[in-house]
């Protein structure tokens, strides 16, 4: 999604002169076009994420719209207090962009993974977390994020829109595929893993959640759950504070009962590291594991 993100920013920066881009010394082979397009409005602030976030809040106070970019864990966890206080409590127009959400940085290891980011940031006041489904979804997600002046977080990853899926205009909940046997809800590119599992006889209503927290459940989703009575939630994020918990809360508030199954990032249970695909396999988030799970749920 980095490529799509940088192209979008390059275009928007031409139109929006108050947009300033701060990077925490990252962007090699990714942001050169943004740097060249934005000139002095592109600032490599150094490996100093705390300073980057507080400065961004202050710059927003002066009327600028500020993007802060780094690898997802570095731009969320190190400066978490600066995000909470200087950006969120003060409602500043700061857009935090984390590349490699979930296990996106794979073999780089645990320090480079962000599997608790939504839990942390969605608990902060006034924060809106945006999670594009796939590369094709990045432009409209960025457009939506920059159209508002509230604190935001963009979680970038990598994913291709599966064949047969329909990507509607941005909304916090969108239905991307239609079926009859089960309702599947997911956040981010890991949801795309279910596409190849459904080539057989099972079919599913598939909903992508692209903004957390979200205000309410859509009628389409409620109808789907009422019909299938089975909801599978998929996310490359820990169980606590991610889509699963947000969704469970709304189900409870709406007195909706269903068979609720949750597949999520489990961290590093075996203490070993590998590619993003390896970690997905360890968590049962890979296509093969999901296929088995979905067959069990549908036939169970």
């Amino acid at each position: 999604m980095r490529k799509e993100f940088s192209k979008t920013i390059e275009r928007i920066a031409q139109e929006r002169q108050n947009l300033v881009f701060l990077t925490g010394d990252l962007g090699f082979m990714a942001l050169e076009n943004v740097r060249d397009a934005m000139g002095k409005r592109f600032v490599n602030i150094g490996v100093s994420e705390q300073n980057m976030i507080s400065m961004a809040a202050a710059m927003a106070h002066e009327g600028l719209q500020v993007i802060c970019y780094s690898i997802a864990p570095f731009t969320v966890f190190r400066p978490a207090e600066q995000i909470r206080l200087d950006v969120c409590l003060h409602k500043k127009n700061v857009k935090i962009v984390g590349n490699g959400g979930g296990y996106g940085y794979g073999i780089m290891g645990a320090t480079h993974h962000a599997i608790e980011d939504i839990a942390v940031l969605s608990s902060f006041q006034n924060m809106h977390c945006y999670i594009p489904l796939c590369n094709e979804d990045v432009e409209q997600t960025v457009n939506t994020m920059l159209a508002h002046d509230y604190p935001s977080y963009l979680r970038l990853g990598y994913g291709i829109l599966p064949n047969g899926w329909h990507l509607p205009p941005f909304a916090y909940i969108r239905q991307v595929a239609y079926g009859k046997d089960i309702t599947i809800a997911g956040m981010g590119p890991v949801l795309c893993n279910v596409a190849e599992t459904l080539s057989g006889k099972e079919s599913a209503d598939i909903f992508v959640f692209s903004e957390i927290p979200f205000p309410e459940l859509t009628e389409d989703l409620k109808s789907s759950i009422a019909r299938t009575k089975k909801l599978l939630v998929i996310e490359e994020h820990v169980q606590r504070g991610g889509l699963g918990e947000h969704l469970a809360l709304h189900l409870a508030l709406n007195n909706i009962s269903c068979r609720f199954t949750h597949r999520f990032a489990k961290g590093y249970e075996n203490g070993l590291y590998g590619s993003q695909k390896y970690h997905q396999q360890q968590c049962g988030l890979d296509a093969e594991s999901l296929k088995t799970l979905i067959q069990t749920l549908v036939n169970g």
């Binding site: 409005r41 507080s54 400065m55 961004a56 002066e62």
Partner: peptide, 14 residues
Amino acid sequence: LSLAAGIAFSQRYT
């Protein structure tokens, strides 16, 4: 100091 630096730095743009 970061907040103050941000306010001071903003003048480059405003």
